[in-house]
Design a protein around this nucleic acid. Structure first.
Lengths: 239, 239
DNA sequence: GGGCCGCTTTGACTTGCATCAACGCCCGTC
DNA sequence: GACGGGCGTTGATGCAAGTCAAAGCGGCCC
């Protein structure tokens, strides 16, 4: 930490931390203290950051790439809990218990993460109650995501879930002008995130295509008429 | 707080707090400080403690009775998130955000709860970092519950979920001696907790009855052979 | 006791979705 | 340029579980 090289590394980490919602607006001194207990880690596409039951090393922040947090049952089926992308933090929950990680975490693509080390952050939290409150807030956000997931999976069918997913990435919900975007992953992976399999996903896309709601070309999806899609969504939720 | 009557009330609250896992092993001074910012509240069976979106008053601890935390979609269907019983705390997640409660909370039966008030506990957390860590631990436990729920609902069928539920209330898992107990609620409510409807629940009970795994008489259920039930559970999970 | 309402059970039907299977397609490697 | 493998699409089939309907069965109030 006293050599120029190490200092340089800390500066890089500090910058990365600043991009994380969890630490938005935090004082430079605190940020530096956190950087001191943070390391970086590269995860190759498809390899695991941790697995269910592994003892907690701390919590993570995605710098670049994406981490798929999921759960596997004995039959080998995966349920995606959430895909975390740049700036998002996860596994904060393992700080205050001696249980291990409650799920698996795998890199969807080549990914760079920050590891905020358990012992260090715990000591820091004891001195910085405000920071502890931030962590509480972050965990609360995760709880909300999970509650949303729960609702998604049980109260809606695949068609509704996909419509919802599409609507979420349209900037102007009520506009009638087409919106075009690229899928950031394979359709198979997206299907899993939506809690279904690729066949059903493909069929549902086809259904929307027939109704002239969207156009699909490879990984490019065009929402032809956002307002019609939101109307469909409302219709499905309203009955 | 200076009148004898108020003091007596605080003593009662203090005792109640002591029964909560969240505060297990905490110092008497801290406990008293928490009692100062805590009020009690009675909730009649079926009435709501709070609803989704209500601004947060603080978090709750169940003293007696049971609180059903659930979510309702536009179609009016309910998804039970968890039923909290004596000694359990919930809604801690609303402390650190200005969003309201993320779900509905209704009393399953006549219930007494403690309300730890938001402003008070926040001030306390700023002075007592250890307490903040406890709250983090508690929220982490809730996250685990939710992740478990998510897995239950997506990776298992109703038969497996019911078997799991039954096995959980058998003291000796591997024994061949019958275990008898009373349902603490109507079957309809239990069905909802297991993420299904009363008809399917009834059919699944019948299926177990035919296999001589259980006997049912009104609200009394007898698990005839716990070890056979756990064997069935393992078989379902293992393939 | 009689009547009523809500819970429970059972049966018949419907449906959304996973699974299995087959085939075209793209893209890598040899 | 030929082969192989993973993805995407489509069709056929099976099944778990939700819905609708009808009929017992309590329990509770008058």
């Amino acid at each position: 930490m006293t050599t120029p090289l190490a200092e340089l590394k800390q500066i890089g980490i500090t910058n990365a931390l600043r991009n994380c919602q969890l630490f938005a607006g935090i004082s430079p001194a605190e940020l530096a203290a956190i950087a001191d207990i943070t390391t970086t880690k590269s995860v190759a596409k498809g390899s695991y950051l941790f697995r269910e039951g592994d003892p907690s090393m701390g919590f993570y922040i995605v710098q670049t790439g994406a981490i798929n947090v999921h759960r596997v049952n004995a039959a080998g089926k995966e349920q995606v809990i959430h895909v975390f992308r740049a700036g998002e933090s996860f596994a904060e929950g393992t700080l205050a218990t001696d249980k291990g990680y409650p799920a698996d975490a795998r890199a969807v693509e080549a990914t760079q993460v920050l590891l905020v080390q358990k012992a260090g952050i715990l000591a820091l939290l004891r001195r910085q109650p405000e920071l502890a409150l931030r962590m509480l807030g972050s965990m609360s956000a995760h709880l909300r995501i999970l509650v949303g997931q729960l609702e998604d999976l049980t109260l809606k069918d695949v068609e509704t879930r996909l419509a919802n997913w599409l609507v979420k990435r349209c900037p102007a919900l009520e506009s009638a002008t087409p919106v075009k975007f690229e899928l950031p992953m394979t359709k198979r992976v997206l299907a899993a995130e939506l809690g279904t399999v690729s066949e059903t996903f493909s069929r549902t896309l086809a259904k929307f295509r027939e109704q002239k709601l969207i156009a699909v070309k490879g990984k490019t999806i065009t929402v032809l008429n956002p307002s019609k899609l939101t109307a469909l969504l409302r219709r499905h939720l309203g009955e």
